[in-house]
Design a protein around this nucleic acid. Structure first.
Lengths: 157, 157
DNA sequence: AACCTAACTTGCAAAATGCAAGTTAAAGCT
DNA sequence: AGCTTTAACTTGCATTTTGCAAGTTAGGTT
């Protein structure tokens, strides 16, 4: 009767790292939560819920538990408000930045998205710089959204 | 009454490229099929089925249709055997190589997998070279598995 | 004290998944 | 030609996951 619903009852399907990664976050929602933490500066349940793609609150709760159990995110209580729970990526979680960046680049290149191609190609070209900036923000708890920075002129070389 | 069962009845959840990517292959199986095509040299239904992680044949059929509908894979009939269907990545599909590589690196770094860390770190270090080799194999229809190459000494610089 | 908020639960219907068995067309064998 | 095998799926049904709406609870606010 724990909070975690989808507790893995079956063992690992194989030793392949790709398979194991997908067992941790291979669904429609987990990486969107990670994205919101990483580039949009979200921290709370309410923010994830209103994030636009319409995740149901029970599913959100399940995913947060699962990501926490996998060591990808962690809860931090807010001293100034006992109701609030702030979620934050762990180091294991911020290490997903490469995966997110590749998903972003692939999606923008091959599907009709709201993101201009020029911005994406700039990011693809300056991969290391983008990764470093995302990591810096995580380390310094700088939660201003990353996307304006990506869209701005900071990447011209 | 088409073959595709999970035909998207809801529209796109948002214009975010990450979200759109996840709608195309954000589940436990799709990227494993892509992986098998990309690095293990698999081509047929039977091969995917016996691949070790135990996908059910109906789910496999659904996934193949969905990936095909998304333009990630394509069927090619085998002239020498009318029963056989060979699946192959499209260019859009081989472009997922970056995503796969990041999943591989993350999984190997953070979870207990069957892959030695040294191999993975070598790959992470020689990212561009690994991507180029995977693309070369796709282009030249070289379906010898990529993994032995990764494990071998070809990456020393 | 009455009201509001954030973070969840709960109940239930709908969809996706998994398993075992069956189908069909094309080969292969005798 | 007739029988067996094989590849690629379907189908039926039970289980699990997802989604939606409404409810709960521990803090805050006024």
């Amino acid at each position: 009767m724990s909070g975690v619903p989808g507790r893995p009852k079956s063992e690992r399907r194989s030793g392949c790292p790709v398979s194991i990664s997908l067992e941790a976050f291979g669904d429609r929602w987990s990486l969107l939560i990670v994205r919101d933490l990483m580039v949009r500066g979200f921290r709370t349940f309410k923010e994830f819920q209103k994030a636009g793609e319409g995740i149901a609150s029970n599913i959100l709760a399940h995913r947060l538990r699962k990501l926490e159990a996998a060591g990808i995110i962690r809860q931090e209580a807010e001293k100034s408000d006992g109701r609030r729970v702030n979620y934050r990526l762990t180091e294991k979680g911020i290490d997903l930045v490469g995966v997110l960046l590749e998903l972003l680049i692939w999606g923008a290149r091959h599907e009709q998205t709201g993101t201009p191609c020029a911005v994406i190609e700039k990011m693809a070209k300056n991969r290391e710089q983008v990764l470093a900036e995302a990591r810096r923000r995580w380390r310094e708890r700088d939660s201003t959204p990353l996307l304006p920075w990506l869209g701005g002129g900071h990447l011209e070389q």
